[in-house]
Design a protein around this nucleic acid. Structure first.
Lengths: 213, 213
DNA sequence: TAGATTGTTAATCGATTAACAATC
DNA sequence: TAGATTGTTAATCGATTAACAATC
């Protein structure tokens, strides 16, 4: 059987579907049609049905979709039924923010270690996890089964740290450094480029200003 | 003259061009062809030329692009030649991380105020800016010319805070709350959904795992 | 059964890539 | 001038939307 390639655009939309369905679930909504959902999400009903049908039929003609079932199925597609262990490299404000964000645990992402080079931070604890010196990183990664490393180190350090992590066996990197990482194909990188995001906001504001003329 | 609408895909790529050109500039690279840049960025040269030509011709036949000039022109397109004043609503770890990120200032984004509801945070200072109580927010927004509000409040609070900010005159929102905001068309919202990003990483890791079978 | 809504095919639209004449 | 590379048009590819038969 030919396995249909899922487009990036579809994958980008999945977390948003998951979020909306989670909200509906909290409001005890039992069923929803693609039409109703499309109005809430401001997309076309067609797109919702097309997107979902990349993964199989989750609905029922004449009824729509069962919210709880669809939510759980999208969760499975996103790999959220599994648990992930995570380390944070860089215990600055952003690293600490991630470590403190308890909500990730609810989704199955568990912080197993936090590392920094700054001796003033090493030894401190965040939510019961002691910040370790980066010179312990190699041993830690090799001796623990870590799925994801969140990289919250300065731009200049990021490529080397990433290369080391990969050498030691890390297969998933959540990159917050404002630079792209060139890593082997079997390593998965997800970028969060805050400055890119701010520039996009700046662009949109400029456009509005121009329109106002 | 018919004004050509710039596609979202192009706008999303602009900050990345800006970043690469900035890096080249730091390395004192004077000129670059679309071909060279395409190899660094792992996109097609065609796409680079198409993207840039949405805004006019910045290059020269037989030569390529002058790095400094192109960098500065893209900066202008992104609205980075202007200065922006910014407030942060929510002085938790993420809000503090943003307040501490000095790099934004280099790009012309100045933090003018930080607000929180928690009395234990109010009165503290971050880089010389005192955290104020949210009950001072209305006056502050009305009496200062604030371009952007970064929203780092809990999901449940976000819609109301955003609505208030807009009511008081804010036209740009940098939203870190894991929810979409429904605001008037003249308000610009840029979302940073960290949990969506983590789910995408989770998806990619799952895909790799499946492929390994 | 009649009404509703899916799953899916076909049509449209838009974005990316290829090609090449223009020109530095 | 010859070589290089842009700016831009044309071709291709992919994604979105529309339409509707299938079916709950």
């Amino acid at each position: 059987m030919e396995k249909k390639r899922i487009s990036k655009a579809v994958i980008n939309r999945l977390p948003r579907y998951y979020r909306y369905l989670g909200d509906l679930l909290e409001k005890d909504v039992v069923r929803i049609s693609s039409k109703e959902l499309s109005e809430k999400m401001k997309v076309t009903a067609s797109q919702i049905r097309q997107d979902l049908n990349n993964f199989g039929g989750f609905g029922q003609q004449g009824y729509g979709y069962n919210v709880e079932y669809l939510h759980s199925e999208i969760g499975k597609i996103l790999g959220l039924e599994k648990q992930y262990s995570l380390i944070i490299i860089g215990a600055g404000n952003l690293g600490q923010a991630l470590a403190n964000y308890a909500d990730f645990e609810r989704r199955g992402f568990f912080v197993k270690g936090i590392f920094d080079i700054n001796p003033r931070l090493v030894g401190m604890s965040i939510r019961g996890i002691e910040i370790k010196n980066v010179d312990e990183l190699e041993d830690f990664v090799k001796n623990n089964d870590i799925d994801i490393a969140a990289l919250t180190v300065p731009k200049a350090k990021a490529p080397q740290v990433a290369a080391d992590l990969v050498k030691w066996g890390i297969k998933g990197i959540w990159n917050f450094a404002p630079t792209d990482l060139n890593l082997p194909d079997d390593v998965v990188v997800e970028n969060v480029h805050l400055s890119d995001s701010l520039m996009k906001l700046s662009y949109k504001l400029s456009e509005k200003r121009k329109l106002a003329d």
